[in-house]
Nucleic acid binder design. Structure first.
Lengths: 135, 135
DNA sequence: GATAAAGGTTCTAGCTACTGGAAGGTCAAG
DNA sequence: CTTGACCTTCCAGTAGCTAGAACCTTTATC
């Protein structure tokens, strides 16, 4: 299987597949006589696993850990679950951060008339003097 | 005012302040005879504005636009508001994305026993064969 | 056989927003 | 005169790719 077929079957670009290999996430495939990478089914499965893990927020390093656990017959599901719980906590804090931004920004936009006048509560809130300086 | 004082007053690191200048966000300060940057109050205000805009999610490029609007007496508040509304939409879509991850990940963790057994629904969902392969 | 298109390979560089470090000049105190 | 803190510059690295250059291989067509 050449790289473009793997790409089509996984929806991951050839560049990206090579990148994953170079990053050490993917076990390097055998090479054909012409130097082309010769992939097998296992590679497709690994790439799909990376893709799904990425979709739910895991970093490449974390994907690497997950793949290692996946390959290890002596793993415990507790290890995997811990990774997932850690990630869940990260996602929650990221959501909280974005919600805070949203709240602030939403309040500001509602105060802004959005007309032709230069007077703008958004800029004022960001630190601009409301109209004139007192210094 | 030397860079470290500006840093203390804004809570932005000297490295970061130089970086903002190099990126073109900050108007370059005059230089003292020894080559040191000599900041004035305006710079502190600009840096604080960048800091607050960054906190509510604006990118550096967007901060640059906001600063430009802030300096322009002929601006309209509508322009500023549009920037804010765009950013709000971006934040909303990012939150939605994270919520989707959260939902999936949360469901998976709840299915995982988290014990010593290697059998793990999380890995299964990520693409691993449930127990054995059919190939 | 010539040639062109469509694959493959490697390498380098760019993106965001910084941070850290090296190598060196300057300033204030002892 | 030395020490330490400050300042300067530039280079490199972080995450996760993507784009491009420069080159080789395969396949099809003329």
């Amino acid at each position: 299987m050449n790289i473009s077929e793997v790409s089509q079957r996984t929806g991951v670009s050839p560049k990206n597949i090579r990148f994953y290999e170079q990053r050490g996430l993917l076990t390097p495939p055998e090479r054909a006589d012409n130097g082309y990478r010769a992939y097998v089914e296992t590679h497709v499965a690994e790439i799909l696993m990376i893709k799904r893990a990425r979709l739910i927020g895991f970093s490449l390093d974390e994907c690497q850990s997950l793949l290692a656990l996946s390959r290890d017959p002596h793993r415990s599901s507790a290890d995997v679950k811990q990774h997932a719980l850690d990630k869940l906590a990260q996602i929650d804090s990221k959501i909280a951060e974005l919600e805070a931004m949203r709240t602030t920004l939403s309040a500001l936009t509602q105060q802004c008339p959005g007309d032709a006048s230069p007077q703008c509560p958004i800029l004022t809130a960001l630190g601009e003097s409301p109209c004139n300086k007192h210094g």
